[in-house]
Design a binder for these strands. Sequence first.
DNA 1: CATACTAATGACTACACGGTCAATTGTCAA
DNA 2: TTGACAATTGACCGTGTAGTCATTAGTATG
Lengths: 278, 278
Amino acid sequence: MAKKQLIMEKALELFAKQGFEATSVQQITDHCGISKGAFYLSFKSKDELIVALIDHFMRQFTADIDYVVNHEQNDADLLYDFYYTTFQSFNKHSDFAKILMKEPTQSFNEELFTKLHNYNKSIEKVILSMIDRLYGEQANDLKYDLAFCIKGFMNTYSELFLLYKLPIDLDLLARSLVEKTDLLAKNMTLSFISDELIQMIDQPLNEERTLDQIVEIVEKNIEDMEDSIEKESLILLKHELLEPSQHPAIVKGLLENIRQHPHCKWAAYLLRRHFGIK
Amino acid sequence: MAKKQLIMEKALELFAKQGFEATSVQQITDHCGISKGAFYLSFKSKDELIVALIDHFMRQFTADIDYVVNHEQNDADLLYDFYYTTFQSFNKHSDFAKILMKEPTQSFNEELFTKLHNYNKSIEKVILSMIDRLYGEQANDLKYDLAFCIKGFMNTYSELFLLYKLPIDLDLLARSLVEKTDLLAKNMTLSFISDELIQMIDQPLNEERTLDQIVEIVEKNIEDMEDSIEKESLILLKHELLEPSQHPAIVKGLLENIRQHPHCKWAAYLLRRHFGIK
DNA sequence: CATACTAATGACTACACGGTCAATTGTCAA
DNA sequence: TTGACAATTGACCGTGTAGTCATTAGTATG
């Protein structure tokens, strides 16, 4: 298992520097100090590696901003926290963010394209729920436009420190984007993106998580973990999934236990949604 | 010469569908109904083909929007015409636009990266001149932010019809973006992107700084500063420039000391690059 | 120490790519 | 019809790739 981590870390560095296609398995294994055969003990193919990387980081990122949006009590700070967390995350995982920016979104296989599309949708969902909470009906017709603008800000401003390694004042960046977003939300009148348009985009790619899928993911997580409070919490949560019996407060506590564990963020996110707990 | 046109057209289709790396010369020539040898009569290499494509379309696009911005007499229509022309062009040359969106900006060679950067700069220049004409001093500090927002709108909204082939009401799109842009221009107060930041982006691509130049800049910085930890750090870093002797960890620490100092950002940036420290 | 088992290796295969060039075909003036 | 020249071909080359597997090294057990 540790081998898998090592490969993912080292491969990430190379992918960010040279791109996915341009990096050979040989280079990766050299960089890890292992043999080529060992690589194929951890991953069935090079494609499986890139999928694992994308899952790992996108889950973490989605879970992070979802948590922020659901746990910030003060409406006045919500947007700021969202932007701050987002860019902090981009900054921390800049190697991965670079890959996402640079790689030809669709020249991978179809499966990966849908996967990325779905993560994109999850993020959009978080953004939309934030918009709804802050501006409610006031911006109902305009919510998709607003979400698109927010995504546009995220994309364009992140280039600044991903392509060029510039020193960034995260606080100022977040504040300036809050202002922009707030201005648009409160004064826009013309909506371009309608419900219909969104439906046309989503149509072919609907996919809901079933209980079984969540259980499966949680179980996989449990296997990979060392004995700890977090592992115990996950096991208890798994039982709760199959046979709900505990008080919501207990469930919430268990979720809080695993929230910060890097490998549990995605599971925590799915569980939070499943149990309907903020 | 007609052969060259044919190859460019057919190759464009394949690149848009599969990406540049994933398309072989054999596939291109098959698609053209010519032999592989014939390809190399028109282009010295596959790289030369992609360069030709990028030049062809970027020149056209840059020239198009430049013309619109310079020839629209009526200020009231300027923004609208800009957006309308832009998206019309994206739509007309959607195959090429797709390539631009999808291709790993830097996994080509360095030459191509600079080339794209320069086209990007040309477009930014057009946008900035438009902002200047419409909002003049009113938005002077905010012009770069405004330009970034406009580029963000262009990127994000164009995805709608590049990735998903949706029918687009160009007129509504342009009008809605004009409203957004105008709102931001007239009400923003917080600027994130300063002249200094823009300089940092442009500098390293023009030419690599020599050691002497860096020393000179650092020395100027030291002179201008009052006695402080930051000044001491800078002095130590200057010695390190001339006679490398310290451990990387120490260098990194010194850089961290001056990172937040407003007048040191540029020097810190150059030093980070010089010492190869993230 | 011997045995059984797992983890790790790297030479190897099969293949696809960009690019070359001797050989072939097409063209047209004499 | 001939011959000189230009245009075009596609088999071929060197290189580098993803992925395999017989072999070896390492480790735990009786």
